[in-house]
Design a protein around this nucleic acid. Structure first.
Length: 253
DNA sequence: AGTCATGATTGCTT
DNA sequence: AAGCAATCATGACT
């Protein structure tokens, strides 16, 4: 277990390898920040583990020599066989190795806790920053008739929000279903963002440094009859049928 | 403590 | 493979 996590076993550059791993994961694009954080904590555990291990080893050696000295002193008054000395040393080593086992065990526990904290994403759930939600909502309500960002758009949104593409997908999945479930309540929010969009100008969600969207331009709130193949193809009957449409005037505001 | 909001996961459908 | 629906688990607010 410890070896598998890189805690025990060869030192392998004292965390440099772990850092390289973390950056490699960052390049892969999934969970860069969490992963590097996890790695950092892990290497911290490893550091402590090795420190303690060394300390125990040192103490063991010191104690052994101390006992040897005592035995030597005693050998003046009574005969002491080498066998006896060896046995003594063995006993000491046994004791210390059992202490080291305990250290290993507690380190193992620490790693387990770390894993459960970091690897179980539900546990580490954090709300997105206000800015990130703003960006996502802006996109969502600006594209209410087709709130399905392409891979490229997802990536762009992820970058802007400082989250992963997966998180963007999750967010849109949740948003779509929750919007649909409670259109009445979401209407307020929709109007709010519609107003915000109108105030901000043409495209508040388009970013500065990236190539323009290769999708069709954002349609009007309730524009129908768009021949978007992706939409017609899916189970969703688009705006008219299922209601991602935003009616201009809400019934109760 | 209770409740709601919300991000993530799971299982199923298309 | 992507998305939906249900559900879990946590955070924030009361």
């Amino acid at each position: 277990m410890l070896i598998a996590e890189g805690v025990a076993g060869p030192e392998k550059g004292g965390g440099a390898g772990a850092a390289a791993n973390a950056s490699a994961a960052a390049g892969a694009g999934d969970s860069a920040i969490e992963h590097s954080d996890y790695r950092a904590k892990l290497s911290q555990i490893r550091q402590i583990y090795h420190q303690e291990l060394e300390k125990y080893e040192q103490a063991c050696n010191e104690f052994t020599t101390h006992v040897m000295n005592l035995l030597r002193e005693q050998s003046r008054t009574r005969p002491i066989t080498p066998k006896e000395i060896e046995r003594m040393v063995q006993i000491i080593h046994k004791k210390f190795s059992s202490i080291q086992m305990q250290l290993k065990q507690s380190t193992c526990e620490a790693v387990m806790i770390l894993r459960s904290r970091f690897l179980d994403a539900r546990r580490r759930r954090r709300n997105f920053s206000k800015q990130a939600s703003e960006i996502l909502n802006e996109y969502f309500y600006s594209n209410l008739s087709n709130p399905y960002p392409s891979e490229e758009e997802k990536e762009a949104l992820a970058r802007r929000c400082g989250i992963t593409i997966n998180q963007v997908s999750n967010w849109f999945g949740n948003k779509r279903i929750r919007y649909k479930k409670n259109i009445g309540k979401a209407q307020e929010e929709a109007n709010l963002y519609a107003a915000k969009k109108a105030a901000a100008g043409a495209s508040p969600y388009s970013m500065s440094g990236t190539p323009g969207p290769m999708m069709s331009p954002p349609p009007g709130e309730d524009s129908m009859g768009y021949g978007i193949p992706g939409m017609n193809g899916s189970g969703y009957s688009g705006v008219g049928g299922m209601g991602y449409d935003l009616h201009p005037e809400s019934p109760d505001v």
